[in-house]
């Protein structure tokens, strides 16, 4: 099955609503709660990244009996140096983002930790595509 969600940059009130919806779906599908937690933590980090850094984005979620694949595509400033962005503690987040409890530079590393496969591609001035896969058993 497939689901699509829209994310607006700067909309901290609704940040996490897509992740919440995916969590409810995985619960209904009786996915192991430990696996579900890893998936939704990774997705929530990525969703907050769009809200914090991009202008807008799309989330595409594909679920099969074996795995879940999530692709987040955003229009935004892009990431200049992905290797640097992956380093824990490195962040370009604004004061507003930090006020919300984020922007510590731990997001991408935490996404990697919670997923089985992760791929990130970015073009400066255009946007970022992040995709990840988790196996469901």
């Amino acid at each position: 099955m497939e689901f699509e969600y829209k994310v607006e940059g700067g909309d901290f009130t609704n940040a996490g609503s897509a992740s919440s919806s995916v969590k409810k779906t995985l619960k209904k599908l009786n996915v192991d709660p430990k696996i579900t937690r890893k998936i939704v933590v990774a997705l929530y980090e990525a969703e907050v990244n769009i809200v914090a850094h991009a202008y807008r984005g799309d989330i595409l979620v594909k679920i099969s009996p074996e795995q879940i694949n999530i692709t987040l595509t955003d229009e935004g400033p892009g990431i200049e140096n992905i290797e640097q962005a992956m380093v824990e503690g490195y962040s370009t987040a604004s004061a507003k983002v930090r006020e919300m409890g984020f922007g510590a530079g731990m997001g991408l590393a935490n996404i990697k930790k919670n997923t089985d496969q992760m791929n990130i591609q970015s073009e400066v001035g255009k946007g970022t595509v992040l995709s990840f896969t988790n196996f469901l058993s």
């Binding site: 901290f12 996490g16 939704v40």
Partner: peptide
């Protein structure tokens, strides 16, 4: 609101 979202996840 993100405090709630975080603990939910």
């Amino acid at each position: 609101i993100q405090t709630i979202r975080t603990v939910e996840m």
